[in-house]
Design a binder for these strands. Structure first.
Length: 281
DNA sequence: AAAGTAACCTGCCCGC
DNA sequence: TGCGGGCAGGTTACTT
């Protein structure tokens, strides 16, 4: 589900709601979701910890505690973090959601964070201050950071023969882009997703680069993308509004908003890929 | 090195 | 009405 803009939105929600809160109790309903350490160790190590800051790297959320331990969370396809204030307004929590509540963090003030995940693809790791997680270490450029420059982008593209869509979605190249935004970026840039990375001209690279920053920033401003099935909701259960700006993703019977020709759907790495073959060369 | 497939899961939608 | 197949904002592992 969640790509960079959705994860960033959740991260900002966490910053607003749980900084300086102390964990009173943890309830683990699905232990297999926690990859490290063993559950009993995690429980004892987290108890009475205070959250001091929240970070994001690619699609990973990083929660840092006063002990300098940190919890890494990946939401997978359908994972959600939900915040419930002390007195919950009762209405927002349906039975279907409760069924998939896998981990609950209870804070001293009576509020809580619930990790909910229908498909159980999400994962968590609790790491010590000096411990590293290979999956994070091997991530590529953070696309909204200044170090991701157009010349660096051009350089790494030259080293690869994969199609540009797979390149953008490979987290070792750029971290945070998934299927929705890869489709949207390439449509806005007017580049066919099947083009080989090292075949792109400088002007095409520039367009992809600018659209990557532009679209991710706009999507963050809109609170991410919630499709009709609502598989993404933010910390408070609110939708993201970037869905209104989506040009091609998910539009199986759509027409190109630029030229009016029917959109095409192809499969790349077994993922649906939407494009206008007239506007994307 | 690239590209394809399967695996991990549950739910929903479509066609028969 | 029900059953099976295909598909879903992700990632990894294995094969060709």
């Amino acid at each position: 589900m969640p790509e960079l803009p959705e994860v960033e939105t959740v991260k900002r929600g966490l910053e607003k709601e749980i900084i300086n809160k102390k964990i009173a109790k943890i309830q683990v309903n699905l232990p297999s979701l926690i990859k490290k350490p063993p559950i009993d160790k995690l429980m004892t190590r987290l108890k009475n910890n205070m959250i001091i800051s929240i970070k994001r790297r690619g699609k990973y959320i990083i929660i840092i505690f006063d002990t300098m331990d940190y919890l890494v969370v990946h939401l997978g396809m359908s994972g959600r973090l939900l915040f419930q204030p002390k007195t919950l307004p009762h209405s927002k929590i349906s039975n279907t959601i409760e069924k998939h509540n896998h981990i609950l963090f209870f804070f001293e003030d009576g509020s809580k964070i619930i990790y909910n995940d229908v498909r159980k693809f999400g994962k968590m790791w609790l790491l010590k201050r000096d411990e590293k997680l290979t999956r994070i270490e091997s991530l590529g450029f953070e696309p909204l950071e200044p170090c991701f420059t157009v010349s660096e982008f051009y350089r790494i593209l030259q080293e690869s023969k994969v199609n540009i869509k797979s390149f953008l979605m490979n987290q070792k190249n750029i971290a945070g882009i998934g299927n929705i935004y890869a489709n949207e970026i390439l449509f806005h840039a007017g580049v066919n997703p099947l083009r080989k990375a090292n075949s792109l001209r400088k002007d095409e690279v520039k367009r992809i680069y600018l659209q990557t920053k532009n679209i991710l920033l706009k999507a963050i401003s809109s609170g991410g993308t919630t499709m009709i099935d609502e598989s993404y909701l933010d910390l408070s259960g609110n939708r993201g509004e970037y869905g209104k700006e989506i040009m091609v993703y998910g539009k199986k019977t759509g027409i190109c908003p630029i030229c009016g020709q029917p959109l095409e759907v192809i499969r790349i790495e077994n993922r649906s890929t939407f494009l206008c073959s007239k506007c994307q060369k």
